[in-house]
Design a protein around this nucleic acid. Structure first.
Lengths: 301, 301
DNA sequence: GGCGCCCCCGAAAATTTCCTTCACTTTGTT
DNA sequence: AACAAAGTGAAGGAAATTTTCGGGGGCGCC
């Protein structure tokens, strides 16, 4: 199994709440209690010692240290420092902005405001948590790829198509697959110079893991875009790009914010590749633009 | 040791440099060196232990602790926490340096920051510009629709599919069409209680205007989601929802921000409809969630 | 100019905090 | 129902922080 958390994982300064949400599902109950306390009251927790936080959460010191490790810090001491930083930011920076959940009887204007705010938050979290090392490696792989296959089903399938459309525009040979059977069939064709990308929020969608595994075993470079970097999909991924997880609710399915997050990652990949292959990408971009022009009616003005 | 400052001396959060200057005269030489290091590079010092800082300043641990005391903290530990906070503040302070356009030689980290910032901006613009009256009317039409057809080609086609997926989840009968011929063929079937939605950034994409026109003439309620509310598509739209247009550049095609904007509008429509039809939407949502559960491998943990 | 007092300073001990190991409990499995 | 695997906390060990204490060095006084 490959390294799940790419080599140098710099501790997140601001995007801690997001990281907690991302990793919470893979935590044990006790660790979740600690993570919750930490995310809920950074300032308060920063004032506590390991022992203090252990008592507050009704757990043991060992658990607190374990949680700190899981969040990417060498130990509790460093988590505490990050917490102090976060607290300072919240204090001085913009308001904590505790947006309420969307209610059934919210006026439509509130819905717009809340959704926009949430998606903005998701973008910020994603950008902060995105591992640029992994991203750079993924871009490099794509830039030199002979062929690119992208797997995604459901909402992630649309993201896969979006990426494919973009890559095609800059001259890469890319295909999106949402049919698991066809995906596997195609994955068999992949070899060393090819790239396979699996997009799954849960990190455990069998239908996209399977083709990725096949591609992986055939020697292709594999990339996973997932909200659960510790999920099964990462087993077969050379590079893992983590999307952030926003709190969801009944009226705001997880698919909504995960899609926003995934699209940002996809855009980053696209722009990164366009940069690397600028010589060929630029003309290809304008060519595709030209080609579309005549499909538009002689617009007004 | 005795109390230096009588009552409650609150540790300085941000105004540390000032405090150093104020107290510098009353410090001994060694302490000044420590204070100087601390004020000069908060982030760097926050990463050091007492011993480390003592070595850096060529002094002893005891002196470091004494300095921390003089600055108003119970000990070095707390000074260090304050330092971490200060560093975080400084860090976030110089954030808005990413507003420039994306250049070919931008490091990948800048690309991420710029893209995220831009999309956030697009969301804010869209939310601000969205006409809630029109949105409300569109929601009402959708909530009572017998059948919904959504037209979109290219990048907008994916948005159309996204909307369709969502509406299906809450029990509506929705179809996305990106084939212009089939779209028209289907549009002919629409009648009074039906809704047709055209998604086009340019507002002048013939392939989606045509089916919308047909639907309009057959008495269906028509909705246009477009970045050009004055474009041809609006002729045949009962309700026009405007998406915002962000500046684009060579490496950042218009499709990118228009997509973000369109998706926000689509999400608003979805949540709005879900609210109106909560009685049926809620069970449908959980049902579709349940149905997917078994498609996921028994994740880790 | 020498002497002695007082304050500054750092080495090392004492203490607190943090981390690791290990054994016990719980949970899920066959 | 027994086994295996993972989760959890207690206790011991390591590392940090704080305190203590004695050795210089400056400054005034004689």
């Amino acid at each position: 199994m490959k390294e799940i958390f790419g080599g140098a994982a710099p501790p997140a300064p601001a995007a801690l709440a997001a990281k907690v949400r991302t990793l919470a599902p893979s935590m044990t109950r006790s660790m979740q209690r600690v993570a919750e306390a930490v995310a809920g009251d950074p300032a308060g927790c920063a004032a506590l010692t390991v022992t203090g936080l252990a008592e507050l959460t009704g757990t043991s010191e060992a658990t607190v240290v374990r949680t700190a490790r899981l969040l990417g810090y060498p130990g509790y001491r460093d988590l505490r420092l990050a917490l102090a930083g976060l607290a300072a930011q919240q204090q001085s920076g913009r308001a904590p902005a505790v947006t309420a959940d969307i209610a059934v009887d919210d006026p439509i204007a509130d819905v717009v405001a809340k959704l926009a705010y949430d998606e903005q938050q998701t973008l910020a979290d994603t950008a902060a948590a995105l591992d640029t090392i992994q991203l750079g490696a993924a871009v490099t792989a794509l830039a030199g790829a002979r062929r690119v296959d992208v797997y995604g089903v459901g909402a992630s399938g649309l993201v896969a198509q979006d990426l494919t459309q973009k890559l095609l525009r800059i001259g890469l040979i890319a295909h999106a697959h949402s049919d698991p059977h066809l995906a596997v069939t195609n994955a068999v064709q992949l070899a060393a110079k090819d790239v396979a990308i699996a997009i799954t929020h849960s990190g455990s969608t069998g239908d996209v893991i399977e083709p990725l595994r096949v591609a992986f075993e055939h020697g292709a470079t594999t990339i996973a875009i997932t909200g659960r970097p510790d999920g099964p999909v990462s087993q077969y991924a050379d590079h893992v790009l983590t999307t952030s997880t926003a709190r969801e609710s009944e009226l705001r399915p997880a698919a909504m914010s995960s899609r926003t997050s995934q699209l940002l990652v996809v855009d980053c990949l696209f722009v990164g590749v366009a940069q690397r292959t600028y010589e060929t990408a630029a003309p290809a971009l304008s060519a595709s633009y030209e080609a579309l022009a005549h499909r538009h009616r002689s617009g007004p003005r």
